[in-house]
Computed example of a mutant assay.
Amino acid sequence: MTTPSEPGGGRLDPGLSVIMSERRKLINLAYRLLGSLADAEDVVQETYTRWYAMTPEQQDAIESPRGWLTKVASRICLDLLGSARARRERYVGEWIPEPLPDPTEWITGRSGDPVDRVTLDESITMAFLVVLESMTPAERVALVLHDVFRYSFAEVAEIVGRTPAACRQLASSARRRLGASQAPATPAAQQAGIVRDFKQAWEAKDIDALIGLLDPDVTAIGDGGGLVSAGLHPIEGSEQVARYCVDVAGMAPDLTILERTVNGQPGLVLQLDGITVAVMAFEVTGGRIKHIWGVRNPEKLRPWTTG
């Protein structure tokens, strides 16, 4: 889990170097809360805008600037989460959190600065982020701040606007959702092998091999955002998912499939003419693929592309 950055202590020199050191923690926090790097960047920008809008005297009056920055960023995220459901209802097709590459594979661009890179751990897997999407905004904030960033419930309560006891209950409810939704972790090496076998079977258009790698109740979800073609509804069942993959390969004979780290776990990147057109994340359970998330929305592929 992410190491806390002394949420309750220490003066924050508003100098650039210290500001940037806080920026990375805030990016990490906002991405986990929102599932979108673009939105996280906007939140952090707004947080610093509010900091610098204050007079030096007002800044000096803040006992813990680090805590202030976290509180403001979290409250902005909470407001955004409150309106997210309405925005998702207008979203074309399924909405999937924005996938992130391994830090060593992060392509320089608008989000290429090392301070903007998100630390990858168990709280950043696609399966974890998808479950977060099912929570209420308050549950999500309470869980992430307390369980991931190690803030006390008293500090969480100040941000969420509820009592510490209520925040404890919110976090407990969120944990129950996680427990009911998440399968036992599969060792990374085993998951990498299964994803590799899936890639090879897909390239060979071997439907039987694909079916053998998929859980009978597998679900595949695509996210095109209405900007590129993608299934508007989940595809369920091993045979249906296998046939869909073979159909995609047939429609794009020049498709290149690469093994890459996606949100800290083995995944695949699809390229045409050297351009990333999709990023795929997987959840493996009992030696078979249980969930597939394929992001095609180009607005969510910025860290994977140049320009």
Rank of each mutant, 00 (worst) to 15 (best):
G179Y: 10
L34D: 01
T70H: 13
E98D: 11
E94Q: 15
S111D: 04
L255Y: 07
E139C: 12
T285N: 12
L258T: 12
S229L: 14
R302M: 05
P103N: 06
L255F: 08
G225S: 01
V156H: 06
R177P: 01
L26A: 03
I235M: 10
G231W: 04
L37I: 07
M135K: 09
Q240W: 02
A252I: 11
D102P: 03
D13I: 10
Q45E: 13
G222P: 00
S21Q: 12
G109E: 04
R75Y: 13
L100P: 05
A192K: 04
S21F: 06
S152A: 06
L69T: 02
I289Q: 08
D60C: 06
L80S: 14
T306V: 13
I221M: 11
E41M: 11
P103Q: 03
L145W: 00
L258I: 10
Y91E: 08
R50V: 02
E203G: 09
T2D: 00
Y151V: 02
M280G: 11
L29H: 06
G179C: 06
D39E: 13
W293K: 04
A189V: 13
Q271R: 15
A84K: 14
V295K: 13
M280K: 14
R90K: 13
V195I: 08
S123K: 11
M251T: 14
D223Y: 00
A220M: 12
E6H: 13
W68K: 04
P164H: 09
S17E: 12
P234I: 05
V277Y: 03
S83R: 14
D42T: 09
D215F: 08
V18D: 15
P4M: 11
D79G: 12
T163E: 08
R175S: 10
T276P: 01
G193C: 02
S173G: 08
M1I: 03
D116H: 15
A142L: 06
A171Y: 00
I275V: 14
Q169R: 15
N28V: 09
D254P: 00
R32T: 03
T305Q: 12
T276C: 12
I159M: 10
D113F: 12
V279D: 10
D116S: 15
K199V: 06
W68E: 05
G10Y: 05
L37C: 05
T306Y: 14
L120C: 01
A171L: 02
H233E: 15
P298R: 03
L232V: 13
A242Q: 13
D208G: 08
A249D: 06
G231P: 01
L213S: 09
D60Q: 12
D273N: 15
G15A: 14
V118S: 07
L81H: 03
S229G: 08
R23L: 07
E105W: 06
R88D: 10
Y244T: 07
A30K: 05
M251N: 15
V295L: 11
F282M: 04
G286C: 01
I194D: 07
V218S: 08
L143V: 05
S5Y: 15
A230G: 05
Y91T: 06
A183Q: 09
D102C: 10
C167G: 01
M280V: 15
A171P: 01
E158P: 01
A183G: 09
